[in-house]
């Protein structure tokens, strides 16, 4: 009974999360949805007498793989969301047909199949205990496959390093070079922080200089643009003007790209 309730709850959640992952425009949301599905699956593994797999699922998938996804998403650009216009004619329609058809066929097949009463893992585990019998299988019968996977992991790690490695074509600039470049540039000092002497300490609030003028460069350009787009401008016209100005700089830069 407990398993049935768990199943139904988690099944609904996981299917919904999966659909959300597919249909959400933003990749970060998709990643979070996938994490949800994986957690649900981990619980379902645990329910099905597979606690080891449940742990591995959480550690490897939710912990490592999903973090990797998020890292790469950050690397590639969080804000680059998919456009909703489909470029391939009929792709969505036929994809839906194929997916629904495939699911219908699989479900039909499973529905037609007649299963005996579940055998349960008690006999397979025996007196050795769950982890011991799992280890027994892994290190005896499947030891060769296990060793192969270790080789695979090493190869994958090496491959990832080789792929991600960027060849340096120029001499690495020394600290001296960097300092000289900074002083030769427009601004030798760091940018002012936002809202330091202001009435508000929000990150999108420009700082005021000691003479009361607005320090425009204290606001992040992206945040400024976000504020303009979302109409989150402060009441003070002087500050609002500065934020608009800052957002315009960002827009111009975007255009020039």
């Amino acid at each position: 009974m407990g398993e049935t309730i768990t199943f139904w709850v988690l099944a609904v959640v996981s299917v919904g999360a999966a659909l959300g992952m597919v249909f959400n425009r933003k990749a970060v949301y998709s990643a979070l949805m996938l994490g949800t599905v994986m957690l649900c699956l981990a619980v379902l593994y645990a329910v099905q007498d597979a606690p080891f797999l449940a742990a591995v699922q959480i550690i490897v998938y939710t912990g490592a793989v999903m973090m990797l996804f998020l890292f790469v998403l950050m690397l590639v650009g969080v804000d680059s969301s998919d456009s909703l216009v489909e470029t391939l004619r009929g792709q969505r329609f036929w994809a839906a047909i194929a997916a629904v058809g495939f699911a219908a066929l699989v479900i039909l097949a499973i529905g037609n199949a007649v299963f005996a009463k579940e055998a349960g893992l008690a006999s397979a585990i025996g007196q050795a205990g769950y982890i011991r019998s799992l280890a027994l299988l892994l290190f005896t019968k499947y030891v060769f496959a296990f060793e192969i996977t270790s080789a695979l992991l090493i190869t994958a790690a090496l491959g990832a390093m080789v792929l991600a490695h960027r060849e340096r074509l120029t001499v690495r600039p020394s600290q001296k070079d960097l300092a000289r470049a900074r002083f030769l540039g427009e601004r030798p000092s760091p940018l002012p922080g936002p809202g330091t002497y202001a009435r508000s300490n929000a990150i999108d609030m420009p700082a005021l200089l000691p003479d009361g003028s607005v320090a425009e460069s204290s606001v992040n350009r992206y945040i400024a643009r976000f504020d303009v787009e979302q109409d989150h401008l402060p009441a003070d016209p002087k500050l609002a003007e500065a934020i608009k100005h800052r957002a315009a700089v960002e827009s111009a830069e975007e255009e020039s790209k």
Binding site: L88, Q91, W94, A95, A98, A99, G101, F102, L105, V106, L108, A109, N112
Partner: peptide, 28 residues
């Protein structure tokens, strides 16, 4: 041969569905 991997994937999925259907028919 459009070069779009997704088109190819679509045909693969159709193939898989067809295979599943065929297996189902044969099994019945």
């Amino acid at each position: 041969q459009t070069g779009f991997a997704r088109s190819y994937a679509l045909s693969i999925l159709f193939g898989a569905a067809l295979l599943a259907g065929a297996l189902l028919l044969v099994g019945n």
